[in-house]
Amino acid sequence: MDVQQTIKEQVTTHDVVLYMKGTPQFPQCGFSGAAIQMLQACGVKNAVTVNVLADPEIREGIKSYSNWPTIPQLYIKGEFVGGADIMRELFQSGELQKMLGKE
């Protein structure tokens, strides 16, 4: 399967998908670490995380998929939400919690 199709399948078959560097237990970058912490603070337990450092094709593919050059990237119900900065703004305004259904 083509990498763009793989990504599409990942983001549409799971409600919450975070593409990150490292794992939730061992994030390899401060921005990815902050992203997973915000999801946890929102009470999200079913987030699927994809470690892009373990898959170079996904790492490059996800950048073209969303036309977004950086990691982390958050998807909710197949829709690209943003990177760490946007997540932080949405989290601080309470919007992220709403989008995740964790108000």
Partner: peptide, 18 residues
């Protein structure tokens, strides 16, 4: 949208961002 705004900044930076 915020995503579009950030994309515009990334676009201005082009390959330097990568």
């Amino acid at each position: 949208s915020m995503v579009q705004q950030h994309q515009m900044v990334y676009k201005a930076l082009g390959d330097r961002m990568r």
